[in-house]
Computed example of a mutant assay.
Amino acid sequence: MGQFFTDDIDALLKSGHGDYGRLSRIKADFEAKKLVTIEDRRYVDGLIARYLQPAAQTEKSERIVKIPEKRIVPPPPTPASVPEIKYQKTVVEKPIEKMYGKKKLRNIVISVASVIFAVLIISVVAMNQDNIISMGPSTTKTLETDQTSYTLGDIISISGSTESTITKLTISDPDAQEIWTEIVKVKADGKFSTLVIAGGNGWEKAGKYTVTASANGKTEETVFDFSPNESP
């Protein structure tokens, strides 16, 4: 009790609680005689209980460390089993091989190739013949009029080309009767031309008239429409 008792009195004196003079006297008497009266003892204990013990209990309670509760973690759920996916192979039948078979298919391919080859040969031969003809001497000539229809009094322009030096031109009516003829000289470039007035004897009928060019035993024709009525 001795040391703790004086320590408590010092704490009371330091904190200013209680009667300073009485506490000092009680401390001095206790240190000198090691005795204290019951009344003084109760006085000191009352001050200690009132001022010192609550602080001590508070300090003690602050030192208590809270132990966290241990949580129980449930085990993870068992994963659901994934059903196994089974893939079914799809068999695609080859319709050509099923219907004809490999041998028949090969025969068809050979036949088609033969036809294509024959067509190519014919085309090549035809092209060669065209080239041979075009490379020979040209005997073609042209014959035309400046219009396709005329009326009484119109001037008809006839032109063409030939390899001959002269050509004979004739005009026939719808009944194939010659109503006009002329011998025309051919120019150096092989072209010829002349003019005819639509009118006179033989131009009384309406219809198609034929122009004919004759040279070196060959003829060429062209036609035009004629009306004996004068144009307004």
Rank of each mutant, 00 (worst) to 15 (best):
Y100S: 03
P54C: 10
E178V: 05
Q53R: 15
E144W: 07
P76G: 06
K60N: 14
V109W: 09
L52Q: 03
L52C: 10
L47Y: 07
K168T: 04
A176E: 12
E69M: 12
I156F: 02
V65I: 08
K60E: 11
I166K: 14
I110G: 00
I155R: 13
N107S: 15
E39L: 10
E163P: 02
S81L: 07
K168N: 05
M127W: 08
N107C: 12
P74Y: 03
Q147H: 14
I72A: 07
D45L: 05
K98S: 04
M127C: 11
K103F: 04
Q53N: 13
T167S: 03
S161D: 10
E39I: 03
E62A: 07
V115K: 06
S138Y: 06
I38H: 11
E69Y: 07
P137K: 09
Y100P: 01
G46D: 02
D45R: 14
A56L: 13
E62R: 11
I156D: 04
E97R: 05
L152V: 00
I155P: 03
I121M: 09
E84P: 01
T90K: 05
E84Y: 10
R71E: 01
D130P: 00
K104I: 15
V91W: 00
I158H: 00
K141W: 05
K103N: 01
Y43I: 08
Q88W: 12
K94R: 14
P137I: 05
G136F: 12
D154Q: 04
K103S: 11
R42K: 10
T78E: 13
K89H: 13
M127E: 04
T148M: 06
A80T: 11
V36H: 08
T142S: 14
Q129H: 09
A56V: 07
D154Y: 07
E93S: 14
I108G: 04
L169A: 01
L143E: 06
I72Q: 03
V92E: 11
E97W: 01
T170K: 03
I38E: 14
T165L: 14
N128W: 05
P137H: 05
Y51H: 13
L52K: 06
V119D: 04
K66R: 11
G101Q: 00
Q147T: 02
T78I: 15
L169H: 11
K86D: 05
S123W: 09
T140L: 15
G153W: 00
G136V: 14
S138F: 14
I108M: 13
T90A: 12
E59P: 08
V44M: 01
V36F: 12
S61G: 07
I116F: 09
P75V: 03
Y100Q: 01
K168M: 08
K66F: 08
S81E: 14
A118M: 04
Q88I: 15
